[in-house]
C-alpha cells in the first residue's frame, strides 16, 4: 500500500471525497462560476459523511488503511 494511496483513503474516510475541497480557493472558484460554494455532495450533508464512516467501520477499511494509527503518527 503506497502512502499516497493510503492518504487518499484517509481523505475518503474523513470527508467522503477522495479529492475534497481542502482549500477555500476551490469554493471561491465555484462561486465565480455561478455555483454554490459547496457541491450538493457529502460536503453539504454532514450526516452523509457519517454514513460513509459507518460503512467503513462495518467493513474494517479503517483498520486496513491504518487510519487511527496514521492519524496518531501525524501521517495524514
Amino acid at each position: 500500500m503506497r502512502p499516497e494511496h493510503q492518504g487518499v483513503s484517509h481523505k475518503l474516510i474523513e470527508t467522503g471525497h477522495a479529492v475534497p475541497i481542502d482549500d477555500p480557493k476551490w469554493s471561491k472558484m465555484r462561486e465565480e462560476l455561478g455555483l454554490d460554494p459547496l457541491p450538493p455532495t457529502v460536503h453539504s450533508y454532514p450526516k452523509a459523511v457519517k454514513e460513509i464512516q459507518h460503512i467503513i467501520k462495518q467493513t474494517g477499511f479503517d483498520k486496513l488503511v491504518n487510519y487511527k494509527e496514521s492519524k496518531k503518527d501525524g501521517k495524514t
Binding site: S9, G16, H17, A18, P40, T41, A48
Partner: peptide, 19 residues
C-alpha cells in the same frame, strides 16, 4: 444529495472490494 466519492476504482477497489 449527499453522494460521495464513487469511490475511486484504482485505489479503493484495489484495497477492499466490499468497501
Amino acid at each position: 444529495k449527499g453522494a460521495s466519492c464513487c469511490p475511486a476504482p484504482g485505489v479503493i477497489k484495489s484495497f477492499d472490494k466490499d468497501t
